[in-house]
Structure formats: C-alpha cells, structure tokens
Amino acid sequence: MTRWLNNDEQRAWRAFGLATRLLTDRLERDLQAAADMPPTYYELLVLLSEAPERTMRMSELAHWTNSKPSRISHAINKLEQKGWVRREHYADDRRGWLTVLTDDGLAALQTAAPQHVASLREHLIDPLTPEQLRQLGDISQVLLDHLTLHQEQTKHTGKGQGE
C-alpha cells in the first residue's frame, strides 16, 4: 500500500526539490559566466588538484563524480583540448589511464575558484544561520549515507530496493 505524503511532507519535498534545482542552476550559470567552465569540469579540476601529484585514474574520477566512464572520458577530452589536463598510461595496467592536472589547468581552477566560492556563499552559506548550516550539513550527511548505501546495494544485486 502506498504511503502518500501528508501536507508537511509534501511542502518539505516540494521546497527541497525546487530549492536544489534553483541553487544548482544558479551555481552553474555563475561558474559558466565567471570562468567559461561547466560544473563538471570544475569538479574534475578540483579532484585532480587535491590528488597526490595532481593525478588520478580515470575510473577514480568516474567514481568520485558518480559519472559513467564514457561521460568522464568526454569531459577529459575537452579538458585536454584546453590544455588543462593530460593523459598518461597507468604503469601497472596498460589499459588504464591516468589524468594529470597541468599547470594551465591549475591556473584555470585558481581563477574560477574565488567566483565559485562567492556564488556558494551568496546563494547557500550566507542566507543560513550557523545553526541552519549545521542542520543542513547533518541532514545532507544522513541523505548521502542512505543514498550511498542504496547505490551500493543496487550495484551488488542489480536491483533497487522493493524490486
């Protein structure tokens, strides 16, 4: 039997859904306008900048961005054309590829980061009180833990819960 949402649940769901879509859209537009960079590219550059020797396997990039390998490969091709990354063969696996953040890529990230952080502050961090921000972090972590567990279960069984 379907457990329909009550009025409070419906209000919370609709506000959450619309707020996340509007926030994502605003952050994407601000990043594109400030740095001519879509969020996927920014996320990849951040991951590479934080990795040892600014290098990661393509499969790791796909995992950490929750993307299909073909989507990551396409994005890396575009970043390579800009000179922001380069690919190298993985020494232990001739079929595997590493992606390396170049100095130009690091410079592009350093140019984009201040505008991205300013947009995050304006549209997410600053409108909240410190208590609301803590609550948002707690709620987000609960959802992340739940969804990550569900995703892992789905990978191992090939089915979602309830199927």
Score class of each variant (00 low, 15 high):
Trp13Phe: 15
Phe16Ile: 06
Gly17Tyr: 05
Gly17Ile: 04
Gly17His: 10
Thr20Ser: 15
Thr20Gln: 15
Leu23Thr: 15
Asp25Glu: 13
Asp25Trp: 11
Arg26Leu: 06
Arg26His: 09
Leu27Gly: 08
Glu28Trp: 03
Arg29Gln: 15
Asp30Cys: 10
Gln32Arg: 14
Gln32Leu: 14
Gln32Cys: 00
Ala34Trp: 03
Ala34Met: 03
Asp36Gly: 09
Met37Gln: 12
Thr40Cys: 00
Thr40Trp: 01
Thr40Tyr: 00
Glu43Leu: 10
Glu43Ala: 15
Leu48Arg: 03
Glu50Ile: 00
Glu53Tyr: 06
Glu53Ala: 14
Arg54Gln: 12
Arg57Trp: 01
Met58Val: 14
Glu60Asp: 11
Glu60Ser: 11
Trp64Glu: 14
Trp64Arg: 14
Asn66Gln: 12
Ile72Ser: 06
Ile72Cys: 05
Ala75Pro: 00
Ala75Arg: 09
Ile76Tyr: 02
Ile76Asn: 03
Ile76Met: 07
Ile76Ser: 02
Ile76Trp: 02
Lys78Pro: 00
Gln81Leu: 11
Lys82Cys: 08
Trp84Leu: 04
Val85Asn: 03
Val85Asp: 01
Arg86Ser: 11
Arg87Cys: 03
Asp93Tyr: 05
Gly96Gln: 09
Trp97Asn: 12
Trp97Gly: 04
Leu98Trp: 05
Thr99Gly: 01
Val100Glu: 04
Val100Trp: 01
Leu101Phe: 04
Leu101Asn: 03
Asp103Glu: 15
Gly105His: 04
Ala107Gln: 13
Ala108Thr: 01
Leu109Arg: 06
Gln110Trp: 00
Thr111Lys: 10
Ala112Asp: 05
Ala113Arg: 15
Gln115Gly: 15
Gln115Phe: 14
His116Leu: 07
His116Phe: 14
Ser119Ile: 10
Arg121His: 11
Glu122Asn: 10
His123Ser: 10
Leu124Tyr: 13
Ile125Gly: 02
Asp126Glu: 14
Pro127Ser: 08
Pro127Val: 08
Pro127Lys: 07
Gln132Cys: 01
Leu133Phe: 13
Leu136Gln: 07
Ile139Ser: 08
Gln141Cys: 04
Val142Asn: 01
Leu143Val: 07
Leu144Thr: 12
Leu144Asn: 09
Asp145Ala: 13
His146Val: 09
